[in-house]
Design a protein around this nucleic acid. Structure first.
Lengths: 188, 188
DNA sequence: GTCTATACACCGATAGAC
DNA sequence: GTCTATCGGTGTATAGAC
């Protein structure tokens, strides 16, 4: 009987989890091998350039997931107020209620930055512009929309960091709860 | 002539810089050795348990610096509004205008968490309680003060992450600029 | 307190069988 | 597509001279 073939998407999910826990430099091939159940040589079959390829593929996969699960819903023809709240719900789910580190954090540090830094910048910019577009739809001017979208990114990242450092995922959820009010408040 | 003795504080400053750039797992002894100008054996003289001791000492040193440069000024007998603004100025200086990663981020990931995680939690809790105390002095109730202090931590961490990921330190400064208004807004 | 020299485990990476 | 086996390099850590 030939060895079971692991679906690539499952491999990517596991790799993503490891990178989020250990960071790029801390995620050794041994750990990645053990976590996936594939020996190092098998990983190199899927990712010829090793960890660099893995990080790129993981980031690619995760950005796609984000686009599908968090960004796409924002384009629905529904009241903006409602969509902002849905955004927060989807963000909570995406980060497993504050229990997952974000790749924006993990991949902007140490050796990872040279490997996937540009890809990361693009992804972040897209996220910001999509949120800003939503706020423009909600009647805010471009400047306000951009500022508040940027603040949203900050709150997501900061919420996840503080939640992780304190072992209190609620911190992230609290921030998400407060977000709609901040995003939708009238300009003074 | 005996080799020049490097002051321990200078060593700690350099180690802190390396940990902030590379993270705990990415900061190898070779890098730390090169950055300090001390060979590995010399580092082990100062820090018998190696990287673990270095991380603890660096965190200790940095928390002290934070207490002196950011927290102590908050106790001055001056208007709270003024102190909140001074807090933001001092935070900007402490993080070199958004160009430095925070150890809260760096040391809550990967192997570092097992080494200095508890120390980190204590430091974060202190920072939050000092900011909350300031807001209580400003007339806010305990709950509001705690919530806003937590939000402050979130904005600091998030601002630094986004600034780092985008290579735009301004993001952090923008967040600090907006902070006094958020902290001092009347409760609705 | 700093150095040279060294030990040995683990890292990333590759060759080649099935 | 997965495996076993192996390589050179680097990682952490220590012994001992000055």
């Amino acid at each position: 009987m030939p060895p079971a073939v692991m679906p690539k998407e499952e491999v990517l999910r596991i790799l993503a989890r490891e990178f989020r826990i250990w960071g790029y430099d801390g995620a050794t091939l041994s750990r990645l091998s053990q976590a996936t159940g594939l020996v190092k040589a098998s990983l190199y079959h899927h990712f010829p350039k090793g960890k660099q390829d893995m990080a790129q593929a993981v980031l690619d996969y995760t950005l796609t997931q984000m686009a599908e699960q968090v960004l796409a819903p924002l384009r629905k023809p529904v009241a903006v107020d409602w969509l902002v709240k849905e955004l927060c719900v989807n963000l909570a789910a995406f980060y497993n209620n504050g229990q997952l580190s974000c790749l924006v954090d993990v991949f902007s540090m140490g050796s990872a930055k040279a490997v996937v830094g540009d890809q990361l910048k693009t992804g972040l910019a897209l996220l910001q512009s999509e949120i800003a577009a939503l706020l423009v739809r909600g009647g805010f001017n471009e400047t306000t929309a951009q500022t508040r979208a940027e603040h949203t990114l900050v709150v997501i990242q900061g919420g996840l960091i503080v939640a992780r450092a304190c072992d209190k995922p609620e911190v992230f959820l609290n921030q998400l709860n407060a977000l709609p009010h901040q995003l939708l408040a009238p300009v003074t």
